[in-house]
């Protein structure tokens, strides 16, 4: 069981991550907000509890790696890296400025802690699979985590990668699917049938779990049980709410990419202040 004090601390970190996302959008005047906010708890858990990392040594060979395959989730990655101390949070204020180090999709050569440059969907799992193979053959105990979008699963290349990871028994590979149920052209149930998701991953040789992607108790318990089975990669379907934390935007497809008017930005700040108030 997650202790109340620990959970409160993680919730505060997740709030800091959400504030950083808002800070980025404020600086850049626009951004992919929905799928960033839906992963705030998961990335907080990864960077503050689960992954074996050292922000002072981003190239430490024995670190765990996170590949954000859905590269448009860059904002939550930048927000979490800043919160974890990979770079100063004031760097976030440069988002959208000319020549900044924060492209709309991550570039591993620009910032410490970014493990792969992504942006075109359906690439990250293959790269992560290659990393996991390389780590296994180097005898390193490190693991590779991958965050994917649910809409991203329509890309066929993911299933090439899933099959090979299952076949090669990449036990050090963990996928987390952000199952927020919305993609750019509409609700996923209207665009493409992805369910039954756990069964799909299972059929490719993966061990799977489903969890509430906003509940730290569930997240830490689930991630703590990886690998779920010896000799299999692990896939977690994280049920989430797109734009989580901003009630006016939650579950609305038009907040996939957000160019906030002043009144919405002010509302968003009030919404996050309200979260802070409830945390006490």
């Amino acid at each position: 069981m997650l202790k109340a004090a620990e959970e409160l601390e993680l919730k505060r970190k997740a709030l800091q991550v959400r504030r950083n996302i808002l800070r980025l959008i404020k600086a850049g005047k626009a951004g992919h907000v929905g799928g960033a906010l839906s992963m705030a708890e998961v990335l907080t858990a990864l960077y503050f509890r689960v992954m074996k990392i050292d922000p002072a040594r981003p190239d430490w060979p024995e670190r765990d790696r996170l590949v954000v395959s859905a590269g448009h989730k860059a904002l939550v990655l930048y927000a979490a890296l800043a919160a974890r101390g990979y770079f100063e949070e004031k760097l976030l204020d440069t988002y959208g400025s000319l020549g900044c180090r924060l492209p709309g999709h991550p570039d591993m050569h620009k910032l410490p802690g970014v493990e792969a440059s992504t942006g075109a969907l359906g690439h990250g799992l293959s790269i992560a699979g290659g990393m996991a193979l390389g780590l296994r053959l180097s005898g390193l105990p490190s693991r590779v985590f991958v965050v994917m979008g649910d809409g991203e699963l329509a890309e066929g290349s993911n299933w090439e990668a899933a099959a090979a990871a299952g076949h090669h028994k990449l036990e050090n590979l963990v996928v987390i699917v952000d199952r927020n149920g919305l993609q750019i052209s509409g609700p996923t149930v209207e665009v493409m049938t992805y369910e039954p998701l756990e069964e799909r991953w299972k059929a490719f040789g993966w061990a799977t779990r489903r969890m509430n992607g906003h509940d730290f108790g569930a997240i830490l318990k689930t991630l703590g049980e990886t690998p779920f089975e010896r000799g299999k990669p692990s896939a977690i379907v994280a049920d989430t709410v797109k734009s989580k934390g901003l009630p006016f935007a939650e579950g609305k497809v038009e907040y996939h990419y957000w160019k906030p008017p002043a009144e919405e930005l002010a509302q968003a700040e009030r919404d996050l202040a309200e979260i802070e108030r409830t945390l006490g």
Partner: peptide
């Protein structure tokens, strides 16, 4: 993609 990941591990 796998080749890229393998290469990124040195």
């Amino acid at each position: 993609g796998v080749a890229c990941g393998v290469a990124m591990e040195g």
